[in-house]
Design a protein around this nucleic acid. Structure first.
Length: 933
RNA sequence: GGGCCUGUAGCUCAGUUCGGCUAGAGCGCACGCCUGAUAAGCGUGAGGUCGAUGGUUCAAUUCCAUCCAGGCCCA
C-alpha cells in the first residue's frame, strides 16, 4: 500500500517563487484600495507620536540610489516606530525653488526667454517642479515607502512661501539681517550675477605681471640689515585690472620670506623658496639674500599702492601658495573670494569700483569709464611708468566664463543680504543647542560643531528668478530696513493668498502701510528688495512651515535623517533658522548615513559609468531586495552596491522566504484557537525553540531601538538558517509528517511554528514590508487577526517562554550534535552511510558528559536525525571519531540495524514484524491506527 | 591643502569598551548526501600576517605616529 498518503506532508499555496517585480505593484494597489495608511492613522490616534521630519529632495530628475537608500531607511524607522506603539506620521516633502530648475527651464525656453515675463517664467518653473514631484512620488511609492503622499509639503506651496517670508522677517525684526557688499561672479555682457553652477571654465590668455609694492614702514628695527634700504614686497597677478582695487598684500603665516638684495640698489621681499626662480626670471643674476623673515614679522606693515597715493596692508592668509608667483598675493577684497575673506578678517573695505557693465567708476583715477579687460594694458603701462612693474608676460590658464554668452566673467562686489553669526549671538546659541541634540553616529556632533564654529555670516540673497523674495523694504535714502510686525503679517497674508509672485507684481508703496516713514531719516520712500532667498533658507524653515503647521506633527521633531552632506546643508540651515527664531534646535536626534559607492568603494558618477539606478534593481529583483540591501548595510559608513551584493541578498531573501513557506505549509490544518498546546505540555525541544525565539526578539527589539538595522538582518537571517532551517525545522519534519495529525506532539510543533511565523513576519515587516504582508495573508485565520500585518505590533519578549537553564542543556546538546554530524560526514565519505537515518550512533562520554546527556537518551536519535543512538559511559570505541572540541567524547558510526521503514524512513528492527504492515515500523503502525486511508 | 569619517575572509557583518587563549557568523565557493521544504533541504571543508610601515609594550587587529586607499564637506 502507499503509506505516503498516511503522512501529513506540507501543503500551501504560498509560492516559492516570489515574483516580486510582478507582485509588488499588485500589493501596493491593494494597500491603496484598502486605505491602509488611513487605517493605520485612525487606529493609532491618541498614541504618543514619533515624528521623523522628511528632508525634502530636490524636485528635479529621477531618484537615484542614494535617494532610495534615504527614503527606505526612513520608511524602516517609521514602520518600526509605528509597530512599537507610536503614532508615526510621515509627511514627505519636496524642495522646489532654486537654480537647477531655473536653469533647466531656461534651457527649455531658449531664445524665447526675452519674450517671457518674469511671472510667466516663474509659472514655468512651478510646473517644471510639479512634473518631477509627480515622477518622484511614484518612484518613492514603488519602493514601498508609506506616507502622506496625497498631502506632501512643498516649499513652493503658497502657505509655505508665506512662512519663508515670515521667518525671514523675524530675522530682520530682531536685527538679524543686514546688507553688505560681497564679491560674486558677474557677467558684464549679460549684466547679471552668476552662480558657481553657471560658470564654465575655458583656457584664456591673460597678462601675467610682477609688481613691487614699496614698503612704507621701516623694517630696520626688526631687521637691522634692512635699515635705510629701499624695500619692496613683490606680488604676481594675472588680472592687472584689479590692481586699482588693491587694498592689501597677503603672505602665508607658515612660510619663510627672504629679503633679497637685487644688486641694483633695491631689496625685494618674496617667499624664500621662490627666490631663485623669480630672480632668474626677472633677469637679476647678481642678487643676494640679506635676511630670512617670518611672515608674522611683516603682518600689519604698510606698503604704498603702486599707482595711487594710499596704503596697502600686509596681511596673513593661508590661501597663499608656492605653486606660482612670489608667495606674496595681491588682495582686492571686492574682486575675489579669498581676497574678500582675508579682507573681512582685517576689516578692509569691500572695494569694487566697477559698474554693472564692467567699467571702472568715476572714482578710479586714470581709468574711469574703461572696460576692465581693456584697461589691463593701460594699467600695465601706468605701472611701468611709475616704476612698479618688474616684469610682464602672457600666460594661458583656465578662466571662468559665462555659460550663456561664453564671455569671461569677473568677480565684482555687490550688495548682498546676510544673517550675522555673532552680533545677535546666533553662533554661540547654535553651538549650545548642538550639544543638546543626539547625533547618530556620535561624530556628527563634531562635524557640524566645527562648521558652525567657523562659518562666516550667512549670505542669504541670490540674484535669481525662481525662489522666494527677501520680502524686505528699505529706505531709498539711508538704506535702513523698514520692518515691524504689521509689515510681516501683511506680507504673510499676501503670500499665503497669492504666493510669493505677488511681491514682484506690487510696488513698494502697495506693500507698506500708508504712513510708513523711515525710522532713521524720516524719509517716506522705500525700495523693494527683489533678490530671492538662498534655497537653504527655504528648506531650513520646514520646521516652521511643516512641523508647527500640521496638527498631527510636533516641534521639535524626534528625528531628522539624511546623508552626511547635510551637516553643511539642511541640518545646518534648519539649526540656524530655528535657533535664530525660536532659540532651540528643531530636532532631538539627527541620524546620518553614508553615500552609496560601487563594489570597489568608489563614488558613483556618470563619467566613470558605475551608476546603478534604483529602477534597474526594482525591475530586475524587486523593491524588496533593495529594502533588504538597505537593512543589511551599515549605513554609518559608505554603502557598497554591486550585482554581486544584490545577488547575495537575493539568495538570502529566498532562504528567508522558503523558511517561512515551510512553516506555513505545515500549518495548513492548524487552528490556533482550537489546537494550541500549552507551553508546559510541550517537549523540551519545543520549549527550547521558543526560548531561542525570545532571544531573537530581544536582539531585534534592541536593534530597532538603536536604529541598527543590519543587526536585524543578520539576526533574522541567521535565525532562519541556523535555528530554524538547519536545526529545529529539520528535526521537526519527522514529528510533523509521521505523527497522527491531531496528536499532541504534532500540535505542539505547530503551536511553536505558529508563534514563530507570527514573530518572524512581524520582525521583518518594517524591512520586508511586501513579503511580511504576503506571509500574513497565508497565516491561519483566527478571530482577531488584523487585516494587515502593518496594523500589528512588533513582538515583545514573553518572559514565560524563556528558560535559561533549559537553554544551557540544549546548547550542550547542540554542540554534541555538531560533533555527531562531523562523524556522520566521515562515515558518508567512506560510503558507510548515505542519509543520516542510515546510521546507528554510539556515543561514548566521560562521566560528566554522560550525566548531562543521559536524561535525553531517548531524544538523541531525533535530535541527530539518525535511526538509533546508544549512549555509553567511558568506553573506548574502536574506529570511533574522537571529538576535538568536547573533551571525553567519541562517536562511532555504524549502519543502523533493522530494515528501513517505508513510511518514516527510520531503520528499526520492528520493521517486518507486523503481518498487516510488513514494510513499516511499530511506531508508524501505531500512528496510522484509526486513520482513514 | 583643511575638517569629519572609514579600511577584519570573494560578499555582508561580529569582535577590539580598559591591548592577552588557535580572530567569529552567515552567504558565496569546493566536495558530498538527500529526493516527503524540490528551480528546495542537510552536511563537511578550504578561505583572513584584521590597509601598509614604524613606535610604545612581556604582548597590538585593538594604543600612538606616518603613509596608502576611499568617502562627505570645505578650500
Amino acid at each position: 500500500m502507499d503509506y505516503k498518503k498516511t503522512l501529513n506532508l506540507p501543503v500551501t499555496k504560498f509560492p516559492m517563487k516570489a515574483s516580486l517585480v510582478k507582485r509588488e505593484p499588485e500589493q501596493l494597489a491593494e494597500w491603496e484600495e484598502s486605505c491602509l495608511y488611513d487605517k493605520i492613522r485612525t487606529e493609532s490616534k491618541g498614541r504618543k507620536t514619533f515624528i521623523l521630519h522628511d528632508g525634502p529632495p530636490y524636485a528635479n530628475g529621477n531618484i537615484h540610489i542614494g535617494t532610495a537608500l534615504n527614503k527606505i531607511l526612513k520608511d524602516i524607522i517609521i514602520r518600526s516606530k509605528q509597530m512599537s506603539g507610536f503614532n508615526a506620521v510621515y509627511v514627505p516633502g519636496w524642495d522646489c525653488h532654486g537654480l537647477p530648475i531655473e536653469h533647466n527651464v531656461d534651457k527649455e525656453v531658449g531664445l524665447k526667454k526675452k519674450e517671457i515675463s518674469h511671472g510667466e517664467f516663474r509659472r514655468l518653473c512651478r510646473s517644471y517642479a510639479e512634473k518631477y514631484i509627480d515622477i518622484q512620488r511614484e518612484e518613492f511609492k514603488r519602493l514601498g515607502v508609506m506616507g502622506e503622499w496625497g498631502n506632501p509639503y512643498l516649499t513652493m506651496n503658497y502657505e509655505y512661501e508665506a512662512i519663508i517670508a515670515r521667518e525671514c522677517g523675524k530675522f530682520a525684526l530682531q536685527g538679524g539681517l543686514f546688507r553688505s557688499k560681497k564679491p560674486i561672479y558677474w557677467c558684464c555682457s549679460c549684466k547679471t550675477a552668476l552662480a558657481e553652477a553657471e560658470i564654465e571654465y575655458k583656457d584664456e590668455s591673460s597678462p601675467s605681471i610682477f609688481v613691487k609694492f614699496a614698503l612704507k614702514d621701516n623694517l630696520g628695527l626688526e631687521i637691522p640689515v634692512l635699515a635705510d634700504k629701499k624695500v619692496f614686497v613683490v606680488i604676481w597677478t594675472t588680472t592687472p585690472w584689479t590692481i586699482p582695487a588693491n587694498l592689501a598684500v597677503a603672505l602665508h603665516p607658515d612660510f619663510v620670506y627672504a629679503a633679497v638684495d637685487t644688486g641694483e640698489g633695491e631689496v625685494f621681499i618674496l617667499a624664500r623658496d621662490l627666490v631663485e626662480g623669480c630672480m632668474k626670471s626677472f633677469g637679476l643674476s647678481d642678487f643676494s639674500i640679506l635676511a630670512e623673515i617670518e611672515a608674522g614679522t611683516l603682518e600689519g606693515k604698510q606698503c604704498f599702492h603702486p599707482l595711487y597715493n594710499r596704503e596697502s596692508l600686509i596681511v596673513l592668509g593661508s590661501h597663499v601658495t608656492l605653486e606660482a608667483g612670489t608667495g606674496c598675493v595681491h588682495i582686492a577684497p571686492g574682486h575675489g573670494q579669498e581676497d574678500y575673506e582675508a579682507g573681512l578678517l582685517y576689516g578692509l573695505d569691500v572695494y569694487s569700483p566697477v559698474d554693472d557693465r564692467g567699467c571702472f567708476t568715476d572714482e578710479v583715477e586714470f581709468f574711469n569709464g574703461q572696460f576692465v579687460f581693456k584697461a589691463d594694458r593701460e594699467i600695465v603701462a601706468r605701472l611701468r611708468e611709475s616704476g612698479g612693474l618688474i616684469k610682464e608676460e602672457t600666460i594661458k590658464h583656465s578662466y571662468p566664463h559665462c555659460w550663456r554668452c561664453k564671455k569671461p566673467v569677473i568677480f565684482r562686489a555687490t550688495p548682498q543680504w546676510f544673517i550675522p553669526m555673532d552680533s545677535t549671538g546666533l553662533r554661540k546659541k547654535a553651538l549650545e543647542e548642538i550639544d543638546k541634540v543626539n547625533w547618530i553616529p556620535r561624530w556628527g556632533r563634531d562635524r557640524i560643531y566645527g562648521m558652525i564654529e567657523n562659518r562666516p555670516d550667512w549670505c542669504v540673497s541670490r540674484q535669481r528668478a525662481w525662489g522666494v523674495p527677501i520680502a524686505i523694504l528699505y529706505c531709498d535714502k539711508c538704506g535702513e530696513i523698514y520692518i515691524n510686525q504689521e509689515v510681516i503679517d501683511h506680507v504673510y497674508a499676501l503670500f499665503k493668498e497669492h504666493g510669493a509672485d505677488i511681491w514682484f507684481k506690487k510696488d513698494a508703496k502697495e506693500l507698506l502701510p500708508n504712513d510708513a516713514v523711515c525710522g532713521k531719516c524720516g524719509n517716506d520712500t522705500f525700495i523693494k528688495e527683489t533678490d530671492i532667498l538662498d534655497v537653504w533658507f527655504d528648506s531650513g524653515v520646514s520646521h516652521a512651515a511643516v512641523l508647527e503647521q500640521r496638527p498631527d506633527l510636533k516641534w521639535p521633531a524626534d528625528l531628522y535623517l539624511e546623508g552626511s552632506d547635510q551637516h553643511r546643508g539642511w541640518f545646518h540651515s534648519s539649526l540656524l533658522t530655528a535657533v535664530g527664531t525660536r532659540g532651540a534646535a528643531p530636532y532631538k536626534s539627527v541620524l546620518t548615513h553614508g553615500f552609496v559607492v560601487d563594489a570597489k568603494g568608489k563614488k558613483m558618477s556618470k563619467s566613470i559609468g558605475n551608476v546603478i539606478a534604483p529602477k534597474k534593481i526594482i525591475n530586475q529583483y524587486g523593491a524588496e531586495i533593495l529594502r533588504l540591501w538597505v537593512s543589511a548595510s551599515d549605513y554609518k559608513d559608505d554603502i557598497r552596491i554591486s550585482d554581486n551584493i544584490l545577488k547575495q541578498l537575493s539568495d538570502a531573501y529566498k532562504k528567508i522566504r522558503n523558511t517561512c513557506k515551510f512553516m506555513l505549509s505545515n500549518l495548513y490544518d492548524f487552528d490556533p484557537e482550537k489546537d494550541t498546546v500549552l507551553y508546559k505540555s510541550m517537549p523540551d525541544i519545543d520549549r527550547f525553540a521558543l526560548h531561542r525565539l525570545q532571544k531573537l526578539i530581544e536582539r531585534t527589539t534592541k536593534a530597532y531601538d538603536q536604529f541598527e538595522f543590519h543587526t536585524i538582518y543578520h539576526a533574522l537571517y541567521n535565525y532562519c538558517t541556523l535555528d530554524l532551517s538547519a536545526f529545529y525545522l529539520d528535526i521537526l519534519k519527522d514529528r510533523l509528517y509521521t505523527s497522527p495529525p491531531k496528536s499532541a506532539e504534532r500540535r505542539s510543533a505547530q503551536t511553536v511554528m505558529h508563534i514563530m511565523i507570527d514573530t518572524v513576519s512581524k520582525v521583518m515587516a518594517p524591512i520586508l514590508s511586501f513579503t511580511a504582508e504576503e506571509i500574513w495573508i497565508y497565516m491561519p485565520e483566527r478571530k482577531d487577526k488584523e487585516t494587515s500585518i502593518h496594523l500589528t505590533s512588533l513582538p515583545v519578549v514573553n518572559e514565560e517562554l524563556k528558560d535559561e537553564e533549559l537553554a544551557k542543556k540544549w546548547e550542550l546538546l547542540l554542540k554534541v550534535r555538531g560533533e555527531v554530524t562531523k562523524a556522520l560526514e566521515q562515515a558518508r565519505t567512506s560510503k558507510l552511510i548515505g542519509h543520516s537515518l542510515d546510521a546507528l550512533v554510539t556515543i561514548s562520554a566521560n562521566k560528566d558528559l554522560y550525566n548531562d546527556l543521559h536524561p535525553y537518551t531517548e531524544d538523541l536519535k531525533s535530535i541527530f536525525i539518525v535511526s538509533q543512538v546508544s549512549l555509553i559511559k567511558e568506553e573506548s570505541l574502536a574506529g570511533a571519531y574522537e571529538s576535538n572540541d568536547i573533551e571525553g567524547l567519541s562517536i562511532l558510526i555504524e549502519p543502523a540495524t533493522g530494515e528501513k521503514c517505508e513510511r518514516c524512513w527510520v531503520h528499526d528492527t520492528s520493521v517486518g514484524t507486523s503481518p498487516q504492515h510488513p514494510t513499516i515500523c511499530k511506531r508508524c503502525e501505531e500512528n496510522i491506527k484509526g486513520l482513514r486511508y
